[in-house]
C-alpha cells in the first residue's frame, strides 16, 4: 500500500468518512474531528507509519494537507 493510501485510510477509519472527502478535511470541519478524534488519528498514524510525533507537530496537525507536510519531517514521503 502506498503512503498516500495508508494516510487516507487512517482518516477514513478515524472519522468514518468516504475517501473522496478526506482531502478537504480540517480540524473541527466535521464533528468527528474533535479532540478525541484527533487523538485517535494521531495514534493511528503513528502506528501505521511507525513514528512518534513531537507534541508540537501533533498540535499543528490541523488538516489533511498540513498533516502530509508534518509527516514529511518523519520521512514519510507522498509522491505527487
Amino acid at each position: 500500500m502506498s503512503n498516500i493510501a495508508t494516510y487516507t485510510a487512517a482518516f477514513v477509519d478515524a472519522f468514518r468518512v468516504d475517501e473522496t472527502q478526506v482531502a478537504d478535511l480540517a480540524y473541527q470541519s466535521i464533528e468527528q474531528w474533535d479532540s478525541l478524534g484527533h487523538m485517535q488519528l494521531m495514534s493511528d498514524l503513528e502506528e501505521r507509519f511507525e513514528i512518534e510525533m513531537d507534541i508540537d507537530d501533533i498540535t499543528d496537525f490541523s488538516s489533511f494537507s498540513k498533516g502530509k507536510e508534518i509527516l514529511g519531517k518523519y520521512g514519510v514521503a507522498f509522491d505527487a
Binding site: 480540524y27 473541527q28 474533535d34 479532540s35 478525541l36 487523538m39 494521531m42 501533533i58 498540535t59 490541523s62
Partner: peptide, 9 residues
Amino acid sequence: FQHMGLGYF
C-alpha cells in the same frame, strides 16, 4: 487554542 486537540484535557 481550540484547534489543537486540547478539549479532552
